[in-house]
Amino acid sequence: MTFDKNHILLFVLVAAIIAVVLAQSVYFLIKSVRRAKKIGMDKKLVNKTIKTAAIFTIAPAVAIVITIAALSEALGLALPWLRLSVVGSLSYEAVAAANAASGMGTTLASLAESITASQYVTIALVMTVSIMVGIWLVPVVAKKYQNGLVKFENKDKKWSDILQNSLFIGMISAFVGYVFCDVSRLWSEGARYVSSTDKISGETQITEYTATSGLVPVFVMITSAVLMCLCGVLINKLKWKWLNDYALPICMVVGMVSAIPLTALFGGEI
């Protein structure tokens, strides 16, 4: 059979795998909803959780879809569809694919012209093996790890609650720091020139940014945070309880949209 990176059989294989992944989510959703009913949890709370999670997911999921286009030129649509639906994210997948191409003495840009079945299989293997850790490690450690946490909680409930909060705050603090990572462009001329390797072509390129471009993410974060505070006031003072379900997605989308005029104001790539 003649190989083509967009061969219909590749789509059939990927669709079958994604169907199984989808089935796992549906299975756990049904299992949790049944358990909620059994232990007498409020049905409204369960429905609200489902609705809120679905609405919240739309914007980040659209952002993931956009990255498929970036990988599809070299690898066709089927493999990026699989990799970005299961485990992957563009930053992982593009690097893994580029490393596999480099290992074969070529680049993704060259493979966009013509890719053989052997090259395709090699890239798929590297991408799959590289990101497999979480899938097998969770079954190995999760039960023992969680049992340990339960025992720990029984010993000191207050510290256990503080520990839980510390986990969340620790993660948030890293992302808050990341938002400020380009602020140094204001005073450091060197920081305005960013050298990067193009993931598709493998070529090194230098991009120049405006001095104020690092302020865009900062003001996006401030916009989103101020709006969240406003939502808190509306929910608590004016009793707009319905807003509780939509506050995070609304603030996130408004924050994202604010990036458009903020980028026009502060500039970006030159």
Partner: peptide
């Protein structure tokens, strides 16, 4: 700017 927008609201 998805991440700054997300973590601004969630962080606060």
């Amino acid at each position: 700017q998805l991440l700054p927008a997300l973590f601004g609201a969630l962080g606060v």
